[in-house]
Design a protein around this nucleic acid. Sequence first.
DNA 1: AACGAAATAGAATGATCGTTCTAGAGGTGT
DNA 2: ACACCTCTAGAACGATCATTCTATTTCGTT
Lengths: 181, 181
Amino acid sequence: MSDARRRILQAAHDLFCSYGYNGTSLKQITARSGLPTGSVYHHFPGGKEQVGVAVVQHFGRVYGEQVLAAVRAAGDDRGAMIRAVFDGAASVVEFGGFVDPCPIGGVARESAGASGVLADACDDVFRRWSDAAAEVFQGDLDFAMALIAALEGGFIMARVRRSGEPLRAIGRALAQGRGSS
Amino acid sequence: MSDARRRILQAAHDLFCSYGYNGTSLKQITARSGLPTGSVYHHFPGGKEQVGVAVVQHFGRVYGEQVLAAVRAAGDDRGAMIRAVFDGAASVVEFGGFVDPCPIGGVARESAGASGVLADACDDVFRRWSDAAAEVFQGDLDFAMALIAALEGGFIMARVRRSGEPLRAIGRALAQGRGSS
DNA sequence: AACGAAATAGAATGATCGTTCTAGAGGTGT
DNA sequence: ACACCTCTAGAACGATCATTCTATTTCGTT
């Protein structure tokens, strides 16, 4: 991947995390990446939407690998693995100034109305994450999806509360597992 | 509440659910509500942001009551209550054409960068929901927050997959409760 | 050194954004 | 009938949007 392409993706990623997809303008992306409009359209002829799809695909893969690595490093106790993911997420959120560290949930929210391309890219990432998590949790796909949904929801709650505590609380609850009465 | 105010809130709610906060223009709100720009600014002098806050506050209360009613109607079995909420959410999503039925998560995502007012309103709603859910679940605030986060995350997953199945899967997982190994 | 493709650079465009503004319509109390 | 206030109505404003366009620079290959 060319350096310009990488810089555009990184800039778009950061801005999507802060302001969302619709809340980010192409001018902001050019300013942050240091590249002019022409370069953005040269590397992404599809314009802003193509940049969005590329961000979702690229960082969907990166974050999937990172979280999976964190899970494996936590050992083979289910509770410990879950805690590791959510405590880690809380730290990332706090260190990052309470900006949503995952651009995918935000893009997914804003994608539907117009283009199915963006929504499809998000769906693909969620499927990959779910499958990967299900492998770790003895093939329990339902629980894997619940974990990912809770993580995305936790990012939202942590953001508006400006605190990593909601993520830690969710991690405690899921690690304990208190569904049935 | 005046009829005009109600129509504006309803129109903004529907549009936020479909296109998000930043993705919705004031012109769309006037078109859908059938009221001109002057009326919107008469009832909401603070402009679009005040409309957003009012939508979050109003529908935050409405949905909180609806979900709580559904929970109580499901009896006193924890698993059954959880299933009722997520199965109900899946039905709503499917019936509504896979539009996010909750405008709050979307607004929360897009709020942070600029105005704290919007983020504060979202945080307030999440707190109320968490407290109400914790009362139902024997004061377990952690689990209550996990449920709400999973519900918000589930809405996102259901939206991009254009299916209610993710919500049902999450409900099954949380009702079963499989955290610790 | 010279050529052609790749990439950078940013001005120009038309559309649309949120907001402000002035004018008129509707209703109520006197 | 008149004054007064609430609400409706939509034109006008400057700013900004995503995109297109034409040059110019950079760079690998000959």
